[in-house]
């Protein structure tokens, strides 16, 4: 087992003035090649957890270690060299070309007063090729579809050169086909040795990714572990407060998660 890139130990966070913590005693770790999927209900604290992990929120109890060092003590630029973040898909305010947008990922490698050189652009082009979006290279980021924008953002985070990537609900707002495309990309990135953490609403996606799971429940506790152990029907029913089944499909060779739905009257 490789040295963990990110370790979360007994993480507890409450907003100032609130006695009830958003979540408590969360522990998990992520090593190169791992995929860690965080499932949680709306309002359970997934965004807060992500904000703690990316260093936006710092008033937590417990510890987050990045490459063994406390996250809060790592300077911002160094942190960006080790950890990349793909936010939920949003339309940027200004009209940059995809190529210019992707090269922004090289920011931690460029000084305060610098601009991207030919070399940096070469890396951006490489990432664009890796994601297979060359045809988008000179288009404006505001004029491409949501799915394309998600790919562009992943290309950007790749140019950062970090070996840990955190994605916030990467399949939101995407159509069915694009959702699966992104999941494929995530899987291939992990196969290349990157560590991936992502949040999602779709248990089925968690199954497709076949990584480790953390379920964040209403009380703020996380149950983390291997897919098979943690992702049980009862856990999911409790999480989503809805009737569902985990079924094994022989034809596909995998489990799926389906909602029971309303039964039609016979």
């Amino acid at each position: 087992m490789a040295e963990p890139i990110l370790e979360v130990r007994d993480l507890t966070f409450s907003y100032e003035g609130f006695s009830t913590p958003v979540f408590r005693d969360i522990s998990f770790s992520v090593s190169p090649g791992d995929i860690f999927v965080i499932l949680g209900a709306n309002g359970a604290g997934k965004s807060t957890l992500l904000n703690c992990m990316t260093g936006i929120l710092t008033q937590y109890r417990g510890e987050i270690l990045l490459h063994g060092r406390p996250l809060r003590q790592i300077p911002i630029r160094e942190r960006a060299l080790m950890m990349g973040y793909v936010p939920q898909v949003a339309v940027p305010t200004f009209n940059y070309t995809v190529r210019d947008y992707v090269v922004m990922g090289r920011a931690p490698h460029i000084g305060l007063l610098g601009t991207p050189s030919e070399e940096e652009y070469a890396r951006a082009d490489a990432a664009i090729r890796e994601m297979g979006i060359e045809k988008l290279s000179s288009k404006l980021v505001t004029r491409i579809s949501g799915g394309e924008r998600q790919q562009v953002q992943i290309a950007r985070v790749l140019t950062q050169g970090a070996n840990l990537i955190i994605l916030d609900e990467p399949t939101n707002h995407l159509d069915f086909g694009n959702q699966l495309k992104i999941l494929d990309i995530i899987k291939s990135l992990s196969e290349q040795g990157l560590a991936i953490i992502l949040t999602t609403h779709m248990p089925d996606h968690a199954i497709l990714l076949d990584g480790r799971i953390g379920i964040l429940d209403h009380t703020g506790h996380m149950t983390a572990g291997a897919l098979r152990d943690v992702l049980t029907e009862s856990a999911l029913k409790q999480l989503y407060d809805t009737d569902l089944r985990l079924l094994h499909i022989d034809e596909l060779g995998r489990d799926i998660c389906v909602a029971v739905g309303r039964r039609k009257a016979p």
Partner: peptide, 13 residues
């Protein structure tokens, strides 16, 4: 101009 949290994640102070 990308926004505070995105800029932060790119290592911008």
């Amino acid at each position: 101009s990308l926004g505070e949290s995105e800029a932060l994640s790119l290592g911008v102070h």
